[in-house]
């Protein structure tokens, strides 16, 4: 691995039909950095994360994972064209994504969920994939749930399993899209605890969240997004303590009420 940034986004625009959802996003995430995205509902945080993982095609701009363009490649004439499915998947495999609604595979046990990527994508043997998967599940506190099905778990357990599933691919970066928003309040802590551990281990992370306390605690940098544009970004103590933009201050007043 080189010393360059982990993720680079340049001049990103995204439309849903005529709706202009991302209007020129530029950001650079360094290796090991934790970037937290905040902003009102509908501001484009999820869309930005989904574009980075190329779950949404973007209309303009560039997204780089390390030195590799995400989703597109340059053809002989130097124009950007949609990359082949195989190439897109290879880039995606290097990023982990955690969703608000967990999205575990309901027909597979927790352990099967976690080894699915290593076995199917990386081509490891089941026997090879199981020990590290168990270690990961141990790390997120699910050693006793290896053979449970997702429906048999609490929301917090499901989300921790989903994090383990993403980590099993040994990603260069993790993307979190409101990982605790659909959890009962008493289950939020256990998921945040796992994320804290990841950050401490130097994982590169982009986290969209409405948990302002957690954002302040875990972030190296906080970025305020509104109407598909970056309002401001800075150290958490600056954004939360002395926001430069009135829109940020107003948003924070509203969420803290």
């Amino acid at each position: 691995m080189n010393g360059g940034p982990a993720i680079t986004v340049r001049g990103l625009h995204k439309y849903f039909g005529r709706l202009h959802v991302l209007r020129g996003i530029d950001l650079v995430v360094g290796r090991g950095e934790v970037l937290v995205l905040i902003g009102p509902s509908g501001s484009g945080k999820s869309t930005l994360l989904r574009c980075i993982d190329f779950l949404e095609e973007y209309d303009q701009g560039e997204i780089w994972l390390g030195r590799d363009l995400v989703g597109y490649r340059r053809n002989a004439a130097g124009r950007l064209v949609r990359d082949r499915d195989a190439a897109v998947s290879r880039v995606r495999a290097r990023m982990g994504m955690v969703f608000q609604s967990f999205n575990l595979f309901p027909h597979k046990t927790v352990l099967e969920n976690v080894i699915e990527g290593p076995v199917i994508v990386k081509g490891q043997k089941r026997d090879e994939a199981i020990p590290p998967a168990k270690a990961l599940l141990d790390r997120v506190g699910l050693s006793d749930k290896l053979h449970a099905y997702p429906t048999q778990l609490s929301g917090g357990q499901q989300q921790r399993a989903a994090i383990a599933r993403a980590l099993a691919m040994q990603p260069e970066a993790m993307l979190f899209d409101e990982p605790t928003s659909s959890l009962d309040p008493e289950l939020v802590g256990e998921v945040l605890e796992v994320m804290r551990g990841l950050a401490a281990d130097g994982m590169t992370m982009i986290v969209a969240t409405h948990e302002m306390g957690f954002a302040q605690e875990i972030a190296d940098r906080v970025m305020m997004i509104d109407h598909g544009m970056i309002v401001e970004s800075g150290r958490p103590e600056q954004i939360f303590g002395a926001p430069a933009q009135e829109r940020t201050a107003e948003f924070l007043r509203r969420v803290r009420h």
């Binding site: 989904r50 993982d53 779950l55 499915d85 195989a86 998947s89 290879r90 995606r92 495999a93 290097r94 990023m95 982990g96 994504m97 969703f99 609604s101 999205n103 575990l104 595979f105 699915e116 990527g117 199917i120 994508v121 990386k122 989903a162 599933r165 993403a166 099993a168 691919m169």
Partner: peptide, 18 residues
């Protein structure tokens, strides 16, 4: 099948066919 299932499969690097 909820769209999140395809999203999750893709996000761990699975190809469409897989």
């Amino acid at each position: 099948i909820e769209r999140g299932q395809m999203d999750a499969a893709k996000s761990i690097g699975m190809r469409y066919s897989a």
